[in-house]
Design a protein around this nucleic acid. Structure first.
Ligand SMILES: [Mg+2]
Ligand SMILES: [Mg+2]
Lengths: 556, 556
DNA sequence: TGCCTGTTTATAAACAAAGGA
DNA sequence: GCTCCTTTGTTTATAAACAGG
């Protein structure tokens, strides 16, 4: 009964299933696949359980494969691997496997065999000696019931295997970002509203039309500030520019919202660590930036989705419109007609920054996957296995040459020291949080080469909708905030905006676990994928957070 | 007009004067002192400008000397040094010099000579090459007007020089912490208040009496939670215990506050990084703790102050009452009569966590000062000068022997690297914040030996009111929150509760700069002093934030 | 189902500092 | 120089939505 529009109810959280990595999966049994579901080789568009394949919006020769849970992973890997080899270096040869939301976890095969699995030397038993209590107690009860969402019928999308970017037409008007037509009507009402929190705007005027921003956008202030700042090429905005950008792109705030929304903007800027204030050299001007490690590179173009088109590639064109529009900072009041409306828009909900209650799975990351094709192609690296605590790679077929030793010459990265017997000295343990490591990181053997420079293929500022977060995993945390402020995550990385795309700390991201099948390498690796705006239809993608290591024990 | 008791208005901030360390102070001119004010050798109790001397509440043989600004520092140092030598190792031989609030900064002598000043080798020019703009622009205008508080008449306190702890009697009832007499009346009203935010309590019953907690205590939720948790010997409390403790000690929340205050407690626990949730080994119970680096060790006994007694030493007895009372967690409703009321109490305001807009001065810290007397006495260390970036010490008289090389065997502490010429590459600089160092820490030469173990003399859990934060300084920050979450401040210090008292990170503290005159060492060092509850009368102490290096150029 | 605990966002507000009229 | 007002920035309080047990 208080005020209605409190807390836009954007974010949804769900308890993720606790994955008992090594407690259930036998070990290495090469038993055959069960439940042979057709791999849906993108020939059968309407198969209800078909695999959906889309090109990665930014990575070349890479496709995202969303696999329903009832599908047989073994067959899929075999099929994709064969297909990748057919296409060779010019066709799609990397596949990011994500688990679809259909079915429940119990439908998965408990183990899965990989052909010609090499005995990886650095596969270490790092189950969860410190968290077995939770696994033993709560694991068998409700935590495995998992994802009882009704199986979405999954109107499958078949993308051609060519690497051309998609550009279907947008459809389906839902949230019309139509700009209001009173661009100059704000001065008068601001005179009457000095106290910043008074009901001055046209509060009850347009009750329910989408035009003029009567509906509040489904994004938090934090998200909108990111939209605004990331729209500038230098990713730097003054407070007033942020105000103006939000008013221009979300007319709700110009027309409907109470003036206190600016207070909230300032509050968010101050409160959240991800927003950092910089000062011009003369100290006169303050610019707000986004801490590069925390920048999900959210942009407004990723917001709008079309009905049947999962392609996120051409929506970046709209972003370019935004950027060029923002570049000229003059005439702040009359830009509404040029704005990125394009009128046929529907807002996609923003996934949570990261999954709360992330399952404490160990993720392996092979940096070679994120090298540009030119580098990862010449000599397929087995160097990932040599990282002190990093990438665990499961080979499908032995193939490769010695590692190229790419850019990974950072600090020597102190030895893992994870082999010391874990002495449970204190009866209390800090509730899963990435901070301070302590016992948590003793349990995790992953000492990622934090400063390892990757060369992401992504364009500099062009937005993308499927980020891959390399060589950094959330150790064990229960809330994104803890991850954000966890020390050690952010060393002194030079904030170069070129490298920030896949930057180390996974804070403020929306992460799911995936597999990368690299047919050039014959490797299968686990990765973290940022699916903030996946570019896929949310209803269809419906990525389920599972741990691939539950299916493939070799991945641990 | 909204709701009245919003935001208890506890904290005050003031812009601190920007101290131009090396721009104004000539350099090393040993010109004589001006304005010979009597050192007030604790013989003249009623001198208006007298120096106030109190024993340090926890450090032996240490006295806190609050010096009015108009006093002559040279004479004071000489006098104190002579007195310390008289007393020898058993008398007071360390003096913490704090600047009183009387007078303005312009009254200080611009330089000050120290007898037999040794040429310190590691004194480096680290003025502020990156912030000279602010110094040049705003420094001369308003920033130097500084502290225009009317000169407090400074009812001086003369403490005897013996080291006996003080125990005067408490006086002056102001905020009566009287417990209400309806210890069991909460169950009935909770039945009617399911929704947690309903006006259920006796809202308008006792409008203005102090009894029964009609007045809200002047502490934030964050402070009260710290009071609660720190009252337990193991500094660990469940949520319900926190509720109960606060209700018991601040009856306002049991009797007057809306039930939403518990929501606020939970909100604060989650929001602030300083509160960390720990889980029992079986995962059933959650305990809230305070991040040791951020723990100011605030306790309730430090809250109550007497009228004319600045002694904080005997108020720890009241804390013992609190603790022992809290140790037995049973009978949560009938303990009100035994509580720490003692009925003659007046609540001291809590100083802000740390000074916002701290002046970017460089602080030097000599760890030997914080060793117990037994250690710092045998061979007075000149080891402070050998620290890679740490303590800069100005000798008064050459005396000492080679360093004892105490516990300072932590990680090799990478070389300062501060000698590289500062390249102002970016036109923007991150607004002063300890995060990420970057250009800020290039400017600061202080690379404190972060893990250096000190052996504080403080009792383990007994509260104290004048903390000294050794070997860690705020690099450059503008808000406590930034300092709190700044990386690199908290490495992997082992959270041993024995060492937390003077722990490195200065987060959540209320810091002022002081000098330590050690007559056993003949050394004069700058320190940071936590004056959260200074134990001194707030009105009299009135510590002014100045930089001692402005007065003593040898301190840089 | 309802309560308790925990996390996160929204909103209002107090206050400080700076700048302009 | 001053006051008054606005803007910007920081911090706290309060309500609420929601997840999970
Ligand atoms: Mg911020
Ligand atoms: Mg917390």
């Amino acid at each position: 009964m208080r005020r209605s529009p409190r807390r836009p109810l954007i974010l949804k959280r769900r308890k993720l299933p606790f994955v008992k990595s090594e407690t259930e999966v036998p070990h290495d049994e090469p038993d055959g696949p069960q439940r042979k579901v057709a791999p849906a080789a993108h020939d059968d568009p309407c198969l209800p359980d078909a695999i959906r394949i889309v090109d990665h919006p930014s990575m070349p020769d890479t496709q995202v494969v969303v696999i329903p849970k009832t599908a047989d992973l073994q067959t899929i890997i075999d099929t994709l691997s064969a297909k990748g080899k057919e296409c060779g270096p010019q066709g799609p040869n990397k596949f990011i496997l994500l688990s679809g939301g259909s079915g429940s976890l119990e439908d998965w095969p408990s183990s899965l065999s990989l052909p010609a699995l090499g005995e990886d030397s650095n596969i270490r038993a790092f189950g969860n000696p410190l968290t077995f209590n939770e696994a033993a107690e709560g694991g068998a009860r409700t935590d495995c019931s998992v994802e009882t969402t009704p199986p979405t019928t999954a109107t499958p999308l078949d993308k051609e295997l060519d690497c051309s970017l998609l550009d279907e037409s947008l459809t389906n008007i839902q949230w019309l970002g139509g700009m209001c037509s009173d661009g100059l009507g704000t001065d008068a009402e601001r005179k009457t509203a000095n106290k910043e929190n008074q009901e001055t705007c046209a509060q009850r005027l347009q009750p329910s039309q989408n035009l003029d921003g009567a509906q509040r956008p489904p994004y938090s202030y934090m998200a909108m500030i990111q939209f605004a700042i990331n729209s500038k090429p230098d990713r730097r905005m003054t407070l007033k520019e942020i105000y103006t950008w939000i008013e221009d792109h979300f007319p709700y705030f110009r027309n409907v919202a109470k003036p206190g929304w600016k207070n909230s903007i300032r509050h968010n800027l101050s409160l959240h660590d991800m927003f950092i204030r910089e000062t011009s050299q003369d100290g006169k001007i303050s610019f707000w930036t986004i801490r590069p490690e925390a920048n999900r590179c959210l942009t407004l173009d990723q917001v709008y989705k079309s009905e049947a088109d999962p392609a996120a590639s051409h929506s970046s064109q709209a972003a370019q419109v935004c950027e060029t529009q923002q570049v000229k900072p003059a005439v702040p009041l009359m830009k509404r007609t040029t704005a990125p409306i394009s009128s046929e828009r529907k807002m996609k909900p923003l996934l949570p920054r990261t999954d709360s209650y992330l399952v404490p799975v160990q993720l392996s990351l092979s940096p070679s996957l994120f090298l540009p094709l030119a580098a990862s192609q010449q000599n397929c690296s087995s160097s990932a296995a040599d990282f002190p605590g990093g990438a665990k790679r499961v080979r499908i077929a032995p193939k490769c040459a010695p590692p190229p030793v790419e850019e990974l010459k950072e600090e020597p990265l102190k030895p893992p020291t994870g082999d010391t017997p874990i002495t449970i000295s204190e009866p209390w343990r800090r509730t899963p949080s990435g901070r301070e490591s302590q016992d948590v990181l003793d349990f995790s053997p992953i000492r990622t080469p934090l400063g390892a420079a990757l060369t992401p293929q992504h364009q500099n500022h062009t937005p993308f909708s499927l980020n891959i977060t390399p060589f950094q995993e959330p150790p064990l945390f229960s809330s994104p905030r803890e991850l954000l402020t966890s020390p050690g995550m952010e060393r002194q990385r030079p904030c170069s905006r070129e490298l920030q795309v896949g930057g180390p700390p996974t804070a403020n991201r929306s992460i799911t676990e995936g597999l990368v099948l690299d047919t050039m390498n014959d490797s299968l690796s686990k990765i973290l994928v940022d699916i903030s705006f996946s570019g896929l239809e949310d209803e269809e993608l419906d990525v389920c957070n599972i741990s691939w290591s539950q299916l493939i024990p070799e991945l641990k």
